[in-house]
Amino acid sequence: MTPRLAVRKTYKMYINGAFVRSESGRSYRPEGNADMNLPLGSRKDLRDAVRAARQAQSKWASLTAMNRGQILYRIAEMVDARRDEFQEMLGGKPRHAQEVEDTVTTFVWYAGWTDKFQAVLGTVDPVAGPYFTFTLPEPTGVVGIVPPPSHSLLGCARHLAPVLATGNTAVILAGDADTRPQLLLGEILATSDVPQGVANILTGSVKELLPWLSAHMDVNAIDLSGCPEPLLADAERNAAENVKRVYRFQPVAPLSPYVMAEAIEAKTVWHPLAR
């Protein structure tokens, strides 16, 4: 039998619910993987992603919490279904199986938080006066994420899931290592009922794209966990331009409801109380 000639996959970024190559027409070959061309995202790809995330945000936040939870759970199901493919991409070792397992766990865990974080991060405020006052957590809006590169899949999951659970939308800069797992996660998102634009995954040079992301005036918060130290000061300076919320978790965000606190706003509502 003649050996099968493989039909190779074209790797594409996931922007606004669509799989795209970079509008710039560029690609890169990750170190040690000369046989693949991954999209080298451009600032225009980034612009499109932020625009998509902005457009999708209010609708995503206004879905019922139950609905968002089901969608996050669906992501877990889809990752689970393609665990072998992920493990293979990650390097094929047992620890990679564990990373996939942890990723599934992460999405399942946050799926359950969508209708519970309000109870942990919200309060009823017993003010001294004839008012009923309460404080609700609300999504910050559009969150830019540079996930820690040490765990290409789990890094995405741990930093994306809490952002989505709370009703934010996200633009992920996955970097320019072997980002096939992140791009595969894009395919997962596309088939998990995540509305278009809610999560966007770009690959390419963080050094090139981060200045645009951190300075983008329509991005409300930025997770710089994976930002290389030499780029950090500039990114944070840029972020100040529109008073972005900036946060980092290292080496990777824990499973904790307080991770969600980074991309939420507390909104306090007062109303008089009288007959």
């Binding site: 008012y131 006052t133 706003e265 507390a266 306090t268 509502v269 007062w270």
Partner: peptide
């Protein structure tokens, strides 16, 4: 961050205050 409905400029130590 703070919404006052049918009132305005009320403050209390038990009620969070801050901006979007």
């Amino acid at each position: 961050g703070v919404i006052w409905a049918n009132t305005y400029n009320r403050f209390d130590p038990t009620a969070p205050f801050g901006g979007y």
